[in-house]
Simulated scan of single mutants.
Amino acid sequence: MKAPITPARPLSLTHRRDAMLMREPFRISGYLFEAMPAVTATLSDGEHSGRGEAAGVYYLDDDPAHMESEIERCREAIEAGIDRQRLRDLLPAGGARNALDCALWELESLSSGEPVWRLAGVGPPRPRLTTFTLPADDPAVVQQRLASLPTALAIKLKLAGDLAADTERVRLVRAARPHVWMGVDANQGYGGDDLDGLVAMLVDQNVALLEQPVRRGAEALLDGWRSPIPLAADESVQDLAEIDAQRARFQVINIKLDKCGGLTEALLMADHARRLGLKVMVGNMAGTTLAAAPAFVLAQLCDVVDLDGPWFLADDPLAASLYKDGEVMVPARLWGAG
């Protein structure tokens, strides 16, 4: 990753809020989403404009109102001219910093004429296999959503924290798609007493990954327990500073730009996780193609890619063009200097 360049002139900052309605309601453990509202920040130097979209972190109350408040709190420092490293010092991890960090990446790319992937040092973008996510809903709903997916070679099924009901859903999906790669996401829904029964069922159904089985703050439940399939940390690892505390409990780190505060932090996380011998996953909090574009840069470094967010939105006109034969491809020209 190249050192960030401080803008040569003052910046103008604008931001807007978007409703981000979903095609259909989407259920996970403890939540039902009908929309994933987002904030888009734009930074202009008078010649070029960079954009960044963020949905925040719903379970930390990092919603659009909070993101906009954080952006406004730092307006003077940002408009005076700021680089990505100074932004990391100015704002904590979260949606506000993500939107601004991504806007700075695009602004630097356009100003320099270099694509973001080259500035990030990840190599030319190539299509990546992506998971498509199914909700923790009634079996009939899961069946209907499964039928409506595009060609999917990898599926992530949300769990609800009820072993009997989750078993029925997992078996349903595996029977319908016997050959796809399959992972599950518990979204903090399980306690320690159910873990052995859960993973025994997952192994029986050839499930390759278990994401966030226990709640954030209760990770000690995993101490001394060895899962026969890899565990991925999502809610348990928000940013770079939290990786070391969870390194012995998880084998995969799910990096989301909204959690960690942007592509700059995400690249640092991926590098650090690799050095620790951990695998790396990129995820999303829904979001349009604009949110997927910086995450797709990170995806070039990842073992598991979960960038299906645009597919599930009702009004992203570019979404359908990103997905083909189970893969996602976000052309560099859609964000930054292509």
Rank of each mutant, 00 (worst) to 15 (best):
A3W: 05
P7Y: 02
R9P: 01
L11W: 11
A19G: 01
L21Y: 13
R23D: 08
E24G: 02
P25R: 06
R27T: 13
S29N: 15
F33I: 14
M36E: 12
L43E: 08
E47A: 08
H48P: 01
R51F: 07
D62P: 05
A65F: 03
E68Y: 01
I71V: 10
E72H: 14
R73S: 15
E76C: 15
I78E: 00
I78A: 05
Q85Y: 10
R88P: 02
R88V: 13
P92K: 12
A96G: 05
A96I: 13
D101A: 08
D101I: 13
L107I: 15
E108H: 05
L110C: 06
S111K: 08
E114S: 14
W117Q: 04
G121I: 03
P125Q: 09
P125T: 11
P127F: 01
L129G: 02
T130F: 07
T133E: 06
L134C: 03
A136F: 11
D137H: 05
D138G: 01
A140S: 11
R145C: 07
P150Q: 05
P150R: 08
L153R: 07
I155D: 01
K158L: 04
L159S: 03
D162Q: 07
L163Q: 02
A164T: 05
D166A: 06
H179Y: 09
H179Q: 09
H179V: 07
M182A: 01
Q188H: 12
Y190Q: 13
Y190H: 12
G191M: 14
G191T: 14
G192N: 09
D194W: 06
G197H: 08
L198P: 00
L198H: 00
V199Q: 04
A200T: 10
M201S: 11
D204Y: 13
Q205I: 04
N206C: 06
V207I: 08
A208I: 04
A208H: 05
L210Y: 05
Q212R: 10
P213A: 03
P213N: 09
P213W: 11
V214L: 15
E219Q: 07
A220C: 10
D223T: 12
G224Y: 09
E235V: 11
E242A: 15
I243Q: 01
A248M: 14
I253R: 15
I253S: 07
C260F: 08
G261P: 02
L263D: 00
L267R: 01
A270C: 12
D271K: 09
A273E: 10
L276T: 04
M281R: 06
V282P: 00
G283K: 02
M285Q: 08
A292N: 05
A293Q: 00
V297S: 00
V297F: 00
Q300C: 06
D303R: 00
L307K: 03
D308W: 02
P310M: 15
W311M: 14
W311C: 02
A314L: 12
D315I: 11
P317E: 05
A320V: 13
S321C: 15
L322S: 11
Y323V: 08
D325S: 10
E327D: 09
V328M: 09
M329I: 11
V330A: 04
A332I: 07
A332K: 03
R333W: 02
W335Y: 15
A337P: 04
